[in-house]
Every structure is written in C-alpha cells, then in structure tokens.
Design a protein around this nucleic acid. Structure first.
Lengths: 201, 201
DNA sequence: TGTACATCAGTGAACGCGCGTTCACTGATGTAC
DNA sequence: TGTACATCAGTGAACGCGCGTTCACTGATGTAC
C-alpha cells in the first residue's frame, strides 16, 4: 500500500472504470463510494474531489455501460463486409443481435446502462447506441429497403422490440423457455415485418 | 400505539400490502424489513414469523405488483364490449395499451414487478399477465385475425414490443421526445405488422 | 537555477444513520380434559 | 363450564455492519520571481 504515489494521477477515470467493473459482476446495487475507493486503493473522501456525490459518480458509470453496449453494436456492424441491400440488411440485423447478445452476456452491465440516476453525465454517450441505430436506418433507406415514411418512427419500433426482447431474456420474465436463437430469429423477422423492410420494393 | 391488539391478525398479508404501497411511491429500493414493519405498526422481528428473510418478502411484493398489472390488463379487456373480429382486435389492443399505461402511471410498481429476486413467490400470479396475453391471442386466432402458424411465437413478439416500449417511456431511454399517444399508435401498428394480424384474410 | 508559496489532491478519523437478523422474552389463543 | 398448558405471534434490546458525507489535516505539484 505504501508503494503507490500520493497522487493517483487520474482518479476520476479510475473510479468510473472501477464502477464499471463492479457493475459488471454485481449490478447497480453493488456500487458505493466506499467500495470503489477501496478497489482503487484510495480513501473514500478522495472521491469527493471529483464527484459532488454518489449519484453523479453513478451517472458516469451508467454512461460508460451504455457506451460499451454501443461499442459492441458498432463492432458487430463493422464486421459485416460488403455493399448492396443484402449487406446493409445484414448490418442492421447485426446491431440488433449485438444488443441482445450484450444484454445476455453482461446482464448486470445492461441493467446499469439503463439504471435511473437523478444526475446527468457530464458528456454525451460516445459512441451512442441511439446514433448507431439512426445511421443504420438511414443506410436502409438509402439501400431502398426502408420506405421513407416509415423512417420517422422506425427507431422507436426497432428499439422497443429489441430492448423488450433483451429484457425478457435477461429477467427470464416469461413463464416459458425462450432460447437465445429463437429470440434472435423472431426479433429479426418481427422488426422486418413491423417496418415493412424489403416489402415495398 | 397501545390501542392496537397484541396480535395483528393477518400480518403476513399486511406486510406484503405495505410493501406494494411503499414500492408504488419509492420503487424496489424503498423496501426494507424495518420500514415495512414500521408502517404496519409492528416490531421488525415480527416479520420473521412470516418470512425467512427480506428476499422472500420482496418476492411476494413483486408478485403482487405483477398481479396489479395483470388486473389492469384484464379490466381494460373486459371494458371492450361486443363480438366479432373488430371487437376482438380492440380487446387485444386494449391489453397492450393497459400494459403501457400501467408502466407510465406506476413506474415504480412496474420496476418492482420485474425486479430480480432470488426467492420465488409461494403462489403463482393470479391474475397473470402472461395468461391474459395467451388467451387474447387464442381469441385472435379464433376470430380469424391471426394465422395459426404465427400463434406459437406471437407471445414473445407482442410482449417484447410492448414491454420494450413501456420501458422506454418509463426510463425516457431515448434521446428524443416520445409522447404517449405516438407510442400507443406505433405499438399497435407494429405488433399488427409483425404478427401479420388481419393481413392473411 | 533555486526557492517561497499558493494550489491541488490526497489522508484518516469521525459523524450519524439505517439496515438485516438474532435472541430471550411475554402476551394471547385455543385445545384437552 | 372451567382450568392447565402447549402453541403461536408478538416485543424490544442488542449484534455488527457498511454506508454517505464532512472536516481538519498533510503531502506533492507547479508557478512566480
């Protein structure tokens, strides 16, 4: 404990990062000023140099969780190569699949991403899941797969369905066995159906 | 405090009911053995005559929250009179609308209904939102509005979309202003589209 | 280049709090005879 | 109908704990001259 320098160097970022790791294993309930200070090898009061209170710290942790989700979507989309309508459609499905995969793979982080905080984070999400979705929908329109009039409400439609399916898988909210593959297939088919993707050509 | 009888009479039910009321205003985080005992005018240790620990008490509170949701759906469905396809469709839409209305009207109870507990409630949900949805889908099939092959996955499709939309409204998860009426209309249209309701006639 | 000093980023002890849970107990109830 | 007594459902004090936050402080940094 004595080999660490008196000044941490980047305590603010370190506390947030520690928060993300704690949240990954224990969810929002596992986050406390004292515990994050402990993990960061710093006294609890040091945190108050960087955050006015716990809630502001939580808001940043939550934002990082959302960014991790967005990064996963971005990566999945980038992984689909090629041009043309079929590649564009595959990229759209890839971000939905990544969303659900993230929720199932990191259920506590998923909860943390959408936990309720009174404080607002200092910066906006970067990357942002919302932005990823918006740009993918734009690409679908340009590829001629999504009718322009449907573009306006498309984000709500897609997000609702995918977020709902992810929540169900995470919580096992349904009294019936739903397996991952079934949800993915149903999700893809349903969003296509709801948005009429491809059907107006 | 001295005018109350020594024996409460139905403490178990009273604690659960108190839990529902506390959850309604403060959400799952507002639930504690000590607070519920306080509200019920009973010593904290009395609760342990009826529940092995906090988690088992929470599981019952959560179940009651889900039952309240189911009751709202049931009431909304019953309120739609008449027979025939158009009435059946209206009843189906009514339960989805009631679900979303409940989430927006009682956001903390909605959270409580789907909170995570390690313990399982002693009894199953009665009424059950799942059962309400299942029977409504059966009615749609019988009215010739839903193609039988789509019946199997229909619960997952409907629940995902409605639950997702409700979560979004409750959390204000989208960085865009989404009003209640728009969500309801979009929800109805999308579920119809995804399930192909009415389109195969 | 060297030194005084303001500023910054930590420490550690302490505060008061509410929590879950246990334990020995006591008051009320109801059953057997 | 009356009484002994087992059983049930409460009480209240206590346990140890971890929490958020404050406060007076001190060690390190870096800037002005």
């Amino acid at each position: 404990m004595s080999d660490r320098p008196y000044h941490h160097g980047n305590l603010r970022a370190a506390l947030i990062q520690a928060g993300v790791e704690q949240a990954r294993s224990g969810g929002p309930a596992a986050l406390s000023v004292r515990d994050l200070a402990r993990v960061t090898h710093v006294s609890p009061s040091a945190a108050y140099r960087h955050f006015p209170d716990l809630d502001h710290l939580l808001a940043e942790v939550s934002r990082c969780a959302r960014q991790e989700l967005a990064a996963a979507m971005l990566q999945a989309r980038t992984a689909v190569a090629g041009a043309g309508p079929e590649a564009e459609l595959a990229r759209f499905q890839a971000i939905g699949e990544a969303y659900i995969r993230f929720a199932v793979g990191h259920p506590h982080l998923f909860d943390t991403a959408f936990m309720s905080c009174l404080a607002k984070p200092l910066e906006v999400d970067e990357p942002s899941a919302w932005a990823v979705l918006e740009s993918s929908l734009d690409a679908l329109v340009q590829a001629g797969l999504l009718a322009p009039p449907r573009r306006l409400r498309a984000p709500l439609v897609a997000w609702s369905f995918v977020h709902g399916a992810a929540s169900i898988l995470v919580r096992q909210a349904l009294p019936v066995e739903v397996d991952f593959a079934t949800v993915l297939a149903t999700m893809a088919e349903s969003v296509m159906g709801a948005l009429g993707i491809g059907s107006h050509i």
